[in-house]
Design a protein around this nucleic acid. Sequence first.
DNA 1: TGCTATTTGTGTTTTAAAACACCAAAAGTA
DNA 2: TACTTTTGGTGTTTTAAAACACAAATAGCA
Lengths: 235, 235
Amino acid sequence: MYYDNNFKDCIDCINNENSVFFGLSNDEKKILSQNYTCSKYKKNEVIYKEGDKPMGLICLSKGKVKIFKEGIGGREQIVRMAKPVGFIGYRALFANENYISSAISIEESEVCVLDKASLLKVIKNNGDFALKLINLLAKELGFSNKRTVTLTQKHIRGRLAESLLFLIDTYGYEEDNKTIKVYLSRGDLANLSNMTTSNAIRTLSSFASEKVIALNGKKIIIKDLKMLQRINRLG
Amino acid sequence: MYYDNNFKDCIDCINNENSVFFGLSNDEKKILSQNYTCSKYKKNEVIYKEGDKPMGLICLSKGKVKIFKEGIGGREQIVRMAKPVGFIGYRALFANENYISSAISIEESEVCVLDKASLLKVIKNNGDFALKLINLLAKELGFSNKRTVTLTQKHIRGRLAESLLFLIDTYGYEEDNKTIKVYLSRGDLANLSNMTTSNAIRTLSSFASEKVIALNGKKIIIKDLKMLQRINRLG
DNA sequence: TGCTATTTGTGTTTTAAAACACCAAAAGTA
DNA sequence: TACTTTTGGTGTTTTAAAACACAAATAGCA
């Protein structure tokens, strides 16, 4: 990781129309944009880890990041996948706690960190913005509650199907409109779906032999979305 | 369930020092207290159910409530337990979604419902209050993420131990300082811990024969808290 | 009060998924 | 380039927990 305050993608975090900051006044944007630092991460670099103290609001302007918790025997559970423009580490920041999860880039990524004090100032003075954050957290909590139930109750095939659908939903497709636009290792796919690596590999092969997907290295091509949704629903 | 706007416990939701509303100005409290309805529920009555549209912020002024999601084959997972003074159903309200979980009283309870519009008005005009809610949601999200990992990774004994510690943490002890102050059925204890009823019964008996707890009907008496915490950590 | 329904409790069987063991392929790296 | 490490892949064994089955006790109810 190295610091670099000069690449302009960081501005995106504040001005991008998909950002929660979209709609802030110029004064407010100025407060935020005067207090940030930027950095780049290569693939598989740690952005923060469990136990660290949040230094600000981290915005992902480029790349992809996995957020996971370590459980029994170091086994990791991916709780979220971040894409640009999006925020990471805001839960701990707003809870005034240290991180309870870790964030690692799964491809080359760029982030900027917005100073906490400036952010709090803007929140306090802008009720609509505060409501947006409340809305964001509430949705995230709903997602987490749903995951708890599916990860504990669905069978392996259902869990993997759900993960694939989640990845499509988060990152979309390549230009061919059928290849999922993210390359996870079998191990990460397993960590996302609460299963062992061998079971992820095995179940992926099953899906492939059933012509639900096709595999090409780390690329996953969706051949039968309806069927995948069906497997997701029925378990 | 029946309506009754005259019992004074409802005022508690706004004035109680443990409430997020504590610290609001009199004007703000007035706005909120002018727009609420109260109701009483007997044991095992539905307060809201999955799919319902939230009508306002529900405050529990008396009693105990379980919040759960239905999963595969109707199997329920308890995601939260509410105590007075506390709020229920706020996630869906703030996410502008229908409920994704259901709430059922596990003993006689009293709730009041604060009008959504009035609440939003107060949030928009009081940044500190908004931050309190952001903090509340962020903590709840942390709890949910932790649960996801422990429910999927811990073994039965560890999961049950964690649930018992969670119940102690939430409801505390009776006057004897060792009986958990909530009476859940074995089925509910199972739904809280992601296991079948028979396994909850079996594991409780194991704990009892190991002198970690003692059982007296639905009463659970903690005999060896250190050991219970140990089982929770290692199990 | 007796009758039904639910909850509690225990033994047995089945099964889904982990654990283990091993090899092949690919990707780093010296 | 060869060498090491990581990732992908597959068969076999083991095991934790569900599923099933059936009493006993308790609670709800007419």
